[in-house]
Amino acid sequence: MNHLDSVPVKEEEVKVIVNPKVFLVSRQSVKEFLIEKGLFLFTILSSILIFFVFIFVAKEAWPVLKANGLAFVYTGGWDQDFYRAWVATAKEPSWRFGALPLISGTIFTTLGALCFTVPLGLGCAIFLVEVCPPWFFKPVESTVRLLSAIPSVIYGLVGLLVVVPWIDRHLVTNEMALRMAKVAALDGTSLLAGILVLGMMIVPIFVALAADALRVVPKVYKEGSLALGVSHWRTIIKIMLPGAKKGIIAGAILATGRAIGEAIALSMVSGSVANIPNPGHGLVFFLEPLRTLASTVVDNAEGMGVPTCESALFACGAFLLVSCVILSFFARWVARTQKQGGS
């Protein structure tokens, strides 16, 4: 939760400035003084660095954003646009790009992954904290934390070798493939594969944070509810989960951030086609391929030499940055409003 929140660091700064004690000359305080100054310096440096990253991305993305305006967001055709821009001559560059498929791809995969991560993760966290015996708890919890540290390319490999073939064999029928042939090839690489792999990736971190949040709900609330003759299960739902709400939402936000920014694993399993899955197609919707903003930056990186393509990719990056900023503000807002609620 802390790394969403740079406020503690800021408090350090204030202390350095206003705390007169650090100027007393003793070895201890000299050391503290140096450490605090050092931390302060790092904070400043990283803030400046982040600032420049924003400026740089904005500057690079600007030509494409200016040329397309809002059409960048609401029109499709990215793959054709990109190809056209790539083969265009330097004299007549093609600035038209429509990123709707990438944006929708990011939203579909992220929301889909959240839809299965949150209930599953909550179930796991409740089981870990409230149900399973302590000897079982420790090993499982360390495993969960380990899982959240596995590099995403491994998840991508598992997805490519297990999930994608399974979907191709068991869910995609010939009839579907024929019907969809004009739109996209159905070969197992799909929204569903993306959702499943992304879900597997973000479940561990969500479980770890939700379990922490459940564990710090004051025991007296739980006892108070049980002593009223409310069952353990209802106590979990009505007392424990609301008490842990803040931490659970923070976990979901962090998981969302990871999902939005995930590039490699999704590029491996979701088809890498700038297609907008159509909910009108029924359940085939989930079997259609797509590509997210982050995957696009990786998959289309070969276009980097061409100024138009480069700017378009930076525009994708700008969207990712902005969504991260929005998430982090949302996280702060949750933290603040929950505190006022008194829980």
Binding site: P218, V220, Y221, E223, G224, L228, G229, V230, G342, S343
Partner: peptide, 30 residues
């Protein structure tokens, strides 16, 4: 059993909800 034999603790432990909901909580549950 716990419904018939209720308990009040050493530290007052009202739930983090309104006064009304505190009293209504158990009633709604039962």
């Amino acid at each position: 059993i716990r419904r018939k034999v209720g308990m009040v603790f050493q530290q007052p432990n009202p739930f983090p909800m309104s006064v009304f909901d505190n009293v209504a909580f158990g009633v709604r549950e039962h």
